[in-house]
C-alpha cells in the first residue's frame, strides 16, 4: 500500500503555468481540458494588494467524493492511493464532476482540435500513437467520458515523476508517498505546515500545499 500524493509550495510557485502546459503536452488533452489548472486571484486594494497562484490537479483524495457518487463503478480508488477513471465503464453521467469540490474533472464530450478540423501532427500522435509510444492514446479513447489527472501513471511505470513536477522550474512541486513517514512529501507536510484544500468537506486530499 502506498498513498501517492503531492506537495505544492505556494511560496516557491511563481504562477508561470508551466505545470498546466507540461500536463497538456504530456497527456494530449484537447482544448478546454486542463488536468493541471492554475487558479489565480487578487485581493485588497492599492497599495496593500496580494496575489495568489493556486496550482490545481486531481487531489487523489483518500475519501473521494467522485468515487462515492459514481453509479457505474468507473471511478476507482487504486491500491497506490490514486483515483482513476476506467473509460470502458464510464457512462458520462457527470455526477462525479458535480460532486468534486475541486473542479478537477473534465467532460470530453466530443473530439476537438486546437486548429479547426485538421489535426496537427502533434495531435495526430496523441490520437493515434505510433508503435512503442509510451504515452497512452487518451484522446481517441475517452470521448463522452469524464477524465482527469492520474498522476501520470504511464510515467510512474517508468519511475519518472509526473510531468508537472518534472517541469516545475521553481521547484515548487514534490511527488511522493504520503504513507511513508520518511518521504520528502511527508516531511514537508509535517515540518512546513502543509494544508489540504477545504478539508471540512471530508475528502482528505492527497495533495498538500505549503503556506505562502
Amino acid at each position: 500500500m502506498a498513498r501517492y500524493g503531492m506537495v505544492i509550495d505556494l511560496k516557491r510557485c511563481i504562477g508561470c503555468y508551466g505545470c498546466q502546459i507540461a500536463c497538456k503536452a504530456e497527456n494530449f488533452t484537447p482544448p478546454g481540458i486542463t488536468w493541471a489548472l492554475v487558479l489565480k486571484n487578487e485581493q485588497g486594494s492599492f497599495p496593500a494588494v496580494r496575489r495568489l497562484s493556486l496550482p490545481m490537479l486531481c487531489m487523489h483524495c483518500a475519501e473521494p467524493a467522485c468515487e462515492k457518487v459514481c453509479p457505474s463503478g468507473a471511478t476507482v480508488k487504486e491500491e497506490d492511493g490514486t483515483v482513476t477513471v476506467d473509460y470502458e465503464t464510464c457512462i458520462g453521467c457527470r455526477y462525479c464532476m458535480v460532486a468534486c469540490p475541486y473542479g478537477s474533472r473534465y467532460f470530453n464530450d466530443r473530439e476537438l482540435n486546437y486548429y479547426g478540423d485538421q489535426r496537427t501532427p502533434y495531435e495526430e500522435v496523441g490520437a493515434d500513437p505510433p508503435e512503442g509510444w509510451e504515452s497512452k492514446p487518451r484522446r481517441a479513447r475517452c470521448t463522452g467520458r469524464v477524465e482527469k489527472c492520474d498522476l501520470c501513471s504511464h510515467r510512474r511505470e517508468q519511475e519518472l515523476e509526473p510531468a508537472c513536477v518534472a517541469n516545475c522550474m521553481a521547484k515548487a512541486r514534490y511527488f511522493g508517498d504520503l504513507d511513508d513517514p520518511y518521504s520528502e512529501v511527508s516531511r514537508l507536510v509535517r515540518e512546513k505546515g502543509g494544508f489540504q484544500l477545504n478539508p471540512e468537506l471530508g475528502t482528505d486530499p492527497s495533495v498538500y500545499y505549503l503556506p505562502v
Binding site: L10, N41, R50, L54, P101
Partner: peptide, 14 residues
C-alpha cells in the same frame, strides 16, 4: 460550489 480556501483567500472553481 463552495469556493476553495487557500492563503486567506477564496477562489472559485466554477
Amino acid at each position: 460550489r463552495v469556493p476553495l480556501k487557500a492563503a486567506g483567500m477564496l477562489l472559485n472553481t466554477s
